[in-house]
């Protein structure tokens, strides 16, 4: 009599080998089902992943370019951030505030060595809003309506934060400016404005906004954010 136990082990090996193609088919089918049912989410994640990759690539490329250009010309950067005090007291309902306007301007005659060529990946607000849950959007809408009635700084900042969270960066930028107009000492409005700029691809503007804030104020949070942007980790 031969060794039946050894034969059984051999049979188990044979079964595993036989099941392998089926296992592959099942896994493939499951992945296909998961992909079909979550196609939009997966596509979004893939797009975000590649966006991040593009940004990293461009930042690293930019660094290299800057090093080379710095050797050639060490003039001041051309993108400047102007903080313009605007006397809006006649229009403002809150006269106690001295609203400030954050304005970005570029010197068209300046040499171009610091100009960055970002691949601007613009994701429209509409597209993003459609993807977010109705609850969050409804809340933002309610707060927006309330702001229109009360012109409250907290509401404006909440909207800026909310839209930033929703990845609606243009709207976040708009509400950061409004909240900054209502409260010029609001660090958070500067941060959201700078972050939104960066998220829309304009990293240099984001950095300049933060640098401008740091000239007048001291903030470790803003410094940290600036460092992240400069190192390409944002």
């Amino acid at each position: 009599m031969y060794d039946v136990e050894a034969l059984e082990k051999e049979w188990k090996r044979y079964r595993r080998k036989k099941l392998l193609p089926w296992l592959g088919i099942i896994i493939f089918t499951l992945l296909l089902i998961v992909y079909i049912s979550n196609r939009e989410k997966i596509s979004e994640k893939i797009a975000l992943y590649f966006n991040e990759k593009n940004k990293e690539y461009l930042v690293s490329k930019e660094k290299n370019e800057t090093v080379i250009k710095d050797n050639q010309n060490s003039k001041n950067p051309q993108v400047t951030v102007n903080l313009i005090n605007e006397n809006n007291s006649s229009n403002s309902t809150r006269k106690s505030y001295k609203p400030m306007k954050i304005e970005l301007s570029e010197d068209p005659n300046a040499p171009k060595e610091h100009e960055r060529k970002y691949l601007e990946i613009i994701v429209t607000d509409k597209m993003h809003i459609n993807k977010k849950s109705n609850d969050e959007l409804e809340t933002l809408e309610v707060v927006e309506k309330r702001y229109n009635q009360e012109n409250n700084y907290e509401d404006a900042l909440y909207l800026a934060q909310g839209y930033y969270k929703q990845e609606a960066y243009k709207k976040a930028q708009k509400w950061a400016l409004i909240s900054n107009n209502l409260n010029n000492s609001s660090e958070e409005s500067w941060i959201i404005f700078a972050k939104s700029k960066a998220r829309l691809g304009d990293y240099r503007a984001g950095e300049k906004i933060l640098e401008a804030y740091l000239k007048e104020n001291s903030s470790t949070k803003v410094e940290k954010l600036l460092k992240m942007m400069e190192s390409g980790n944002f």
């Binding site: 031969y2 039946v4 034969l7 059984e8 051999e10 049979w11 044979y14 079964r15 080998k17």
Partner: peptide, 13 residues
């Protein structure tokens, strides 16, 4: 049956 087939060489594991 499969075990016997392995034993007799009908199945090559």
């Amino acid at each position: 049956i499969e075990m016997a087939s392995i034993k007799l060489g009908f199945i090559n594991v």
